[in-house]
Design a protein around this nucleic acid. Sequence first.
RNA 1: GGCGGAGUAGCUCAGUGGUAGAGCAGGGGACUCAUAAGCCCUUGGUCGGUGGUUCAAAUCCGCCCUCCGCUACCA
Length: 525
Amino acid sequence: MKGDDTRFLTGTDEHSINIAQSALDEGRSARAFVDEKVGYFKVAEDALAISPDRFIRTTDPDHVRAAQEMVRRAHANGDIYLGTYEGWYCPNEGFRNATDVQETARGTICPNHPEVPLQWLTEKNWFFRLSAYQERLERHYEEHPDFVQPDYRRNEMLGFIRGGLEDFSISRERTPGGWGIPFPIASNGSSSRREDGTWDPEAGVIYVWYDALINYITGAGFPDDMGAFAHWWPADLHVIGKDIARFHTIFWPAMLWSAGLEAPRRVWVHGWLLAAGGERMSKSRGNFLDPNDFVTAFGADGARYLVLREVPFGRDAEVSWESFVRRYNADLANDFGNLLNRTVSMTNRYLEGERPAPTAEGQRDDAGVPPVSDLASTWSRVLERYRERLEGCALDDALAELWGVVGAANKVVDAEQPWVLAKAVKDGDEIAAARLRAVLGELLEACRLVGLAVAPFMPGVAPRVLAQLGYAFDYGADGNGGPPILEELRWGAHGGEPGRVSAPEPLFPRLDLEVATEPGGTTPT
RNA sequence: GGCGGAGUAGCUCAGUGGUAGAGCAGGGGACUCAUAAGCCCUUGGUCGGUGGUUCAAAUCCGCCCUCCGCUACCA
């Protein structure tokens, strides 16, 4: 919306052994299994009005090419070598981490398949020379203090690096059903591609997360369209969950450097939404919030607002249905929704719907009345802080800044009491008439600015706000098109344009806490 | 165990030496444009415990208690 070229990528990581095994357990192909799951993700994205430029799947053919090219580059650079990997091996799931297995009277077992004895297996694998990048990683962290955010995550990762980096394996000889991207290099160092174009299964597959990380550059055009890639890479921002921080902040930059590519500019690590008591949400615990139910109750815009406002973006947060309903009613229905509604209603009632221009700072309107409120100066301060918070990924603070203006505007209504001014106007008081127009002009402008500024959070609500105010909204559902938003976000940017407000229409119907419980029937917490 | 963070009003949190704060929730009031919303006022806290430093400590130091994060191949 600022007018910058953007490319927004989401997608799915599909080559895990767990996926291959679950598909086998259900008696169907891994491909059919992931196709179904991807459908669920896309439905949820649509429901939440998340509009990536591309939804990338690691099973996409261009991603297969990208992953194989990255392996070739690492190999050409001398960063991968053949070694042996050993550990507990579950015939159903492949290698299990020592922390995932249990010692029992009958031997070592994996909790998912207690009937099947584990084997201590040795496998020939390719290893990536992560150890060669320790110094460069430390230097990178020092020279780019914002590379990993929030700061405490950066410190954790830096501590991990300083503790010494080991090489890690990036291939697997065997996976259930051979699931994975074919490893493009044979053990003798030549290509594993055969004359008929298929890949030699003896070469194994690329280990799942080595392949998964590469999705970011596939999405930027690597290696099929290096022109596009040069335009989009390095990415300005990776947003990831805390559980995969190490992969994105340590392994991934090293992989890129090995291939002669740049690291992303910034990686933001977000926390989790936790259920009551700080428990992790899971279906088996029955404390899972289905995003589709969420949208049903609050609307796509409401759901987006709540999740981003209620939670400090860098930390875990305990959330509950009740906390969301409270926040929805307080912020959206009562504060902002009602502000717009009362402002539009008064404009209709007292000015026959005609929209007066907002009085600018230091100016007098045509009737000689100076600004009646300090909303204009408040706005310019808030906008600056709003931008700072957004750029720092402090999304909850960013929204709080905007709501400071909402609060100020509600106070202005009570301080000026337009209904009293309107009575005086009826009695022929011309000064009151000018003041009434000034008050409503300032309130309408505050509504326009907040409604537009909040568009990245509530892309569906923003056009409805502007429509009620009689303004056009020229941006698409994905935020593209339209004028540079910072121009539009100036106080009085459309001050000279005559216009009419439309009939007031509540944006966020107030919810009854007792009624608005989870559709799944789970007891609200 | 090691490293790091947190413990402040019912809830979520701000506050790094000088008379305890915000939002929400609760209570009261005046008003009426509005989604019984908004506005004003207000109840509520020995700032985890303890011992120090200081004229003065939520804030600095020591010890203790509780919780959380990181501590490499599930991803």
